[in-house]
Computed example of a mutant assay.
Amino acid sequence: MGFVYALGAYLSWGLLVPVHFRLLGAFSPSFILAERILWSILFVGGLVLIWRRRIRTPFPLTRRHGLLVVSALLIGVNWLLYLRAVDQGHLLDASLGYYINPLMSVGLGAVVLGERLRPAQGVAVGIATASVCLAVAWAGDLPAVSLALALTFALYGLVRKVVGVDPMIGFLAETLVLAPAALAFLWLTPDPLFPPDSRSLLLLALTGITTAVPLIWFAAAAERLRLATLGLMQYLAPTCLLALSVLAYGERVEPHRLVMFGLIWLALALYAADAFRAGRAARG
Score class of each variant (00 low, 15 high):
238 P>D: 08
88 Q>C: 06
183 L>W: 14
127 I>N: 02
2 G>N: 10
60 P>Q: 06
249 Y>S: 02
257 R>I: 03
204 L>M: 08
178 L>C: 10
126 G>T: 11
44 V>P: 05
134 L>K: 00
218 F>I: 06
277 R>L: 11
84 R>H: 15
45 G>P: 06
201 L>H: 03
265 W>F: 12
277 R>E: 10
275 A>R: 15
202 L>T: 11
209 I>M: 14
69 V>Q: 00
141 D>W: 09
246 V>E: 05
235 Y>T: 01
180 P>D: 04
132 V>R: 02
1 M>C: 03
277 R>N: 01
236 L>F: 13
279 G>P: 04
245 S>G: 13
28 S>T: 15
272 A>I: 13
82 Y>D: 03
271 Y>W: 13
119 P>H: 10
14 G>M: 09
58 P>F: 07
21 F>M: 01
63 R>A: 14
7 L>K: 09
190 P>M: 09
91 L>K: 04
169 I>A: 10
96 L>F: 09
75 I>V: 15
145 V>E: 03
210 T>S: 07
166 D>E: 11
221 A>H: 06
259 V>F: 14
129 T>F: 15
257 R>V: 00
51 W>N: 05
182 A>M: 08
146 S>E: 10
169 I>N: 00
217 W>F: 15
226 R>N: 04
99 Y>G: 05
36 R>T: 09
152 T>N: 10
270 L>I: 15
267 A>C: 04
7 L>Q: 09
118 R>W: 08
39 W>I: 00
52 R>D: 01
81 L>V: 13
188 L>T: 08
148 A>E: 00
237 A>I: 07
8 G>M: 08
266 L>V: 15
207 T>E: 02
14 G>A: 06
88 Q>D: 15
26 A>C: 00
5 Y>V: 06
243 A>V: 14
1 M>T: 13
165 V>S: 14
269 A>E: 07
165 V>R: 01
147 L>C: 07
161 K>C: 05
137 A>K: 07
134 L>R: 00
101 N>D: 10
119 P>T: 12
211 T>D: 05
133 C>Q: 05
41 I>C: 03
252 R>F: 08
275 A>T: 14
42 L>K: 00
94 A>C: 07
171 F>E: 01
98 Y>W: 12
234 Q>G: 11
243 A>G: 07
82 Y>A: 09
183 L>R: 04
263 L>Q: 03
259 V>D: 06
229 T>C: 02
27 F>L: 12
142 L>A: 12
253 V>S: 11
33 L>C: 09
113 L>P: 06
109 G>S: 14
228 A>F: 06
167 P>C: 12
280 R>G: 10
142 L>Q: 04
168 M>V: 11
205 A>S: 11
